[in-house]
Write a protein that binds this DNA or RNA. Structure first.
Lengths: 246, 246
DNA sequence: CAGTTACGCTACGACTCGTAGCGAAAGCTC
DNA sequence: GAGCTTTCGCTACGAGTCGTAGCGTAACTG
């Protein structure tokens, strides 16, 4: 598994802030930020075990039949420990699934077309996992009536994807493949639009149409998207480095 | 509200087949298809009241906190009556939300651009309803582990949207705006791709980015999509009939 | 050492689920 | 009308989950 680190995100550090922000039975934030240097520290191993167990339980049971009691048993911790760290099922699952997106990267593949294909394939591979499939839509559905949860999803998952889009776009502008944006506000709007198109298409393909976003599909999608962005025909084959690549 | 009926779909008749297919306590299909002409008939008013109550409950409580007991109370029927007709929450909500899409239509607006804008705006308006927001993602999430449910969603909701896409595309080909497709298999693939892009983008914009798919956004989206489909610049303003329209 | 916090465990009330059983209502056929 | 069939409303029930409280113990700090 060759991974080319390019954009160095703060990874899951953001999430940790939320995780540690619950000094036993207290839901409020910032009570403990740097206080409470005393007492028994929370087990980091327990965190990892719980998140891992959550993903396992998602695969086994799916979102709706997943119970926190089962997750606790699977992780080898008490149910109360779980409730001390997460407010409920929603928050726990968001954190568990967010870790799947840690591997999202955008190495410079030389062209905008190749960059799009690469990141879309990565994204599709993550979405295709059973734990992501059943969980992502469910938490998003919950987030429509839960503003803090939506914010959590945004910072943990969505914003990082969005940053990849903006990075790829900036890179293409440096290459001259895309025209530079004059108005920064307009640039933001365009980036948001592209992001909704790319992420939405892959999610819809994978979860609603329930068909794989394989290389052939990604290539067709990239062709249309490139045309839409540049107006010019994407000359020749998009992937210059052979048909198969992970 | 001026509505121009153009494509005459079989509407909610398909759903009725499922609804009536449960002769009290029997989950199996086809046991009663045309049998059981005797006995007390089921109240059609109850069906309507239950579906309406389901939507109301979705607005009030959202998906996760919705209970069938509450829906029954709201509809003025007994809880057991509910279970006689629907297998559970998932199936009930799918049928309740599917009715929202009955109003989806594709009047001939004269150009491909106008057709796309029109149907996307309609779709966005439906998605923007609170009952649709919270329910659609949830049932799709459930459908990842429930094949019959996915089939039900497909026939009740997705296929009808897809048909609009294919109709609009055929219309554009007649107009000469899009080149005719040679291979029918390739035509299907392309239609599926367009569908995933359109529906996915709107859904993602509305539910994940949580921002309205208003006219400005739809216009930008249509511009990019048209460019992607035709390769040619969409000449001039897309909407020929002024800025505002319902 | 004392002080503080996290942990595992048990138990609990409140709630939802989905079903069973009953008597009555509403339709059909003869 | 009688007789049959199916639905309806109602009550009650076991099973399961939720989220928390209480307790004794473990871990870490000064």
């Amino acid at each position: 598994m060759h991974r080319l680190p390019v954009i160095s995100l703060t990874a899951s550090q953001n999430r940790r802030i939320w995780l540690l922000n619950r000094p036993d039975m207290v839901t409020d934030m910032q009570c403990r930020s740097q206080a409470a240097r005393t007492g028994r520290p929370r087990s980091a191993a327990a965190d990892a075990a719980i998140l891992e167990a959550t993903r396992t339980a998602l695969v086994e049971l799916g979102w709706s039949k997943l119970t926190l009691g089962y997750v606790a048993t699977l992780a080898g911790v008490a149910k109360t420990t779980l409730y001390r760290r997460w407010a409920g099922k929603n928050e726990l699952v968001v954190d568990a699934v967010a870790e799947l997106f840690d591997e999202l990267e955008l190495p410079d593949r030389g062209s905008l077309a190749a960059d799009i294909e690469g990141v879309v394939l990565q994204f599709a591979a993550i979405l295709d996992r059973p734990e992501a499939k059943t969980a992502l839509m469910a938490v998003v559905a919950e987030s429509t009536r839960d503003e803090p949860l939506r914010e959590r999803i945004r910072t943990s998952i969505v914003d990082r994807q969005k940053r990849l889009v903006m990075e790829g776009r900036a890179r293409a502008q440096v290459r001259g493949e895309l025209p530079p944006e004059a108005d920064p506000a307009s640039a933001d709007r365009t980036a948001a639009l592209i992001f909704d198109v790319v992420a939405g298409a892959v999610v819809h393909r994978t979860l609603v149409s329930a068909e794989p976003a394989d290389e052939e599909w990604v290539r067709s999608f990239t062709r249309i998207l490139l045309l839409g962005l540049t107006g010019a025909t994407a000359s020749g084959p998009v992937s210059t480095d052979g048909p198969s690549d992970a």
